[in-house]
Structures are given as C-alpha cells and as structure tokens.
Nucleic acid binder design. Structure first.
Ligand SMILES: [Mn+2]
Ligand SMILES: [Mn+2]
Ligand SMILES: [Zn+2]
Ligand SMILES: [Zn+2]
Lengths: 138, 138
DNA sequence: CAATAATTGCACTTCCATTGCAAGTATTAG
DNA sequence: CTAATACTTGCAATGGAAGTGCAATTATTG
C-alpha cells in the first residue's frame, strides 16, 4: 500500500499541501466530483489552483474525467493499475437521475461495440442513467 | 410520406417560416448539428429564436440531443417512429476525432448493459469515438 | 545563501446556454 | 371585420463553467 506522497512522487508530481488535500478528498468520496464540489470543500483556496491541480492529476493519470451528460465535467480517482493512458475508460459510469451523483462501476467493463464498415473505434464513452442503489432503497 | 407541415401539426407545433427552414436544414444534414451551425446557416435570424426553435423541437420529440463529449450540445432529427419519449437514444452515436462530426448510427442499437444489484437502468448514452468512414478513406 | 524552477492567487476572458421583456405576428371570438 | 388573445420573434442581459497571462509566493537545487 502506497502513501499518497508515494503515489504523487511516482508520477513525477511534487508533493504540496494542496495536492495532498485534494487527493484525500477524492479518495474519501465514493462518487465522481465536479470542480465546484472541490471548490466548496476548499473555500480558502483559489479556484484556479483547484482547477490546475485536478488538471495535473488528469495529465498524470491519477484521475479520469467523466462526462455523464449533465454538462459538468466530473472527476474520479483512477483505480490502482488503471490504464487510462492506453485505452480510456474501460469501465462504465452510472448517473443517478434521483440524487444526481455519478459513480464509477469499475468492475463493469464496456462491452465490445460494433461499428459499421469504414468506421474505426478508438474509444467509447458509456453512461448508464437511472436510479442508484442508495436511491432505489435496497 | 408526411410533409414538414404535417409533421409539425401532428406534434402541435405551429407552422412558421423559421421552423420550416430549420427543419429542412436538419433534414438535409446527415450529421448532428450544433446551435452554432444553425446560426451560421441563418445569419439573419436571431440566435434566441434558433435556440428556442430547437428546444421546441426537442420537447416535442422532433429532434434529440446528443452529448458527444465535445462539450457542445448537438441535435439530430429523430427517425420516423423513434420513441425518444419512452426510451431515450436507443441507437449509438459516433464522433469522429478527425473531422469532428457526430452522426447517429440509427441501425446500431445499444446492447443490454448489466448494472449491479440495486441499480436500476433507465437509459444509456453511448458515444463511440474514432475515425469515421469518410476520414478513414474507404 | 543565491539562483532557479514550480506552484499559487488574482484578474480577466471566452464560450455556450438560458431568461425577461417588449414588439411583432398569427389565431380566435364576438 | 375587428378586437382580444395567444404565440413567436428579437434584443439585451445574465449566469456558469472553463481556460489563460502574469505577478507573487514557495520550494528545490547548486
Ligand atoms: Mn470512472
Ligand atoms: Mn441520434
Ligand atoms: Zn441516487
Ligand atoms: Zn470524420
């Protein structure tokens, strides 16, 4: 088990207080977060810093971006050993129409999608919408 | 074969010059269009009118919205007999990373996606990204 | 300790989406 | 046919998210 410091260093990112805090915040959340969520969690920090921190994380494949169709970009920590660099987002994402939260279903891989002759598939974004386990009351 | 006038009337939309023109524009395009595309095609009309026309079409299930991950909403005419109201976007969408165009693959239905216990799937958004038939040169 | 490099904060910008309100146009009732 | 009413269109303004230039601060290195 690596410490957060070790994770950052292994990706050639300097360890700063801000980065540790944001990493912890993401790790504690079991759902994908928006920049605005992070802003509300760290009101003292500047928006730009938060923005650039998450962008750094994204570049270095510490987080991946999720477009769940709400129009607002969300982010979630990559799984240990996730290969975002090679094939983006192999797992599917679930967006709850009730609580409006989006979560990674890391265990659920995206099935092979057939495309017509002449088309070349490079990657796939798949978002399932519906009611999440918490909201469905089971 | 219905005329455009008949299509609009059947959906309780008043026939206006603007609406006929925009409908025709969408019908002639084989790709999904942005509001900005429509704006460029109708420079004399006000942006708001174009916006509200497309929103009216969307409400009445004449067009469907496509979120292809570019951050800009696109629209495309619904197929004849499409059931947007009931289950949104059964077909998949393809976004070309080369020409930046998005098309409906109406023949390609989205496969059944399994979700974990407790989750209820209501609809699915699936966008495949890659190279389209025109750009792949076949 | 000084030089250098990276990070952070502030201010500003751009782009798309959306709304209030007034003016114009079509529809309906008398 | 005319007046009242409903709907459509245009203008102006707003809001929200994303992104950038630059200076100040902080950390790293020699
Ligand atoms: Mn994910
Ligand atoms: Mn479509
Ligand atoms: Zn929920
Ligand atoms: Zn193409």
């Amino acid at each position: 088990m690596q410490t957060i410091e070790q994770v950052l260093e292994s990706k050639d990112i300097r360890v700063t207080a801000m980065r540790l805090l944001i990493y912890k915040f993401l790790a504690e959340k079991e759902v994908a977060v928006t920049l605005s969520d992070i802003e509300h969690a760290f009101v003292k920090a500047d928006r730009t810093t938060l923005y650039r921190t998450i962008k750094t994380f994204e570049e270095k494949d510490i987080v991946h971006q999720i477009d769940d169709g709400t129009g607002i970009t969300k982010y979630a920590l990559c799984e240990n050993g996730c290969n975002c660099e090679i094939e983006t987002d192999l797992h599917l994402h679930f967006h709850c129409n009730n609580c409006n939260e989006t979560i990674c279903l890391t265990e659920h891989k995206i099935p092979q999608i057939k495309v017509p002759e002449g088309f070349v598939s490079e990657n796939v974004n798949l978002v399932v919408k519906g009611i999440c386990d918490k909201c469905s009351g089971q």
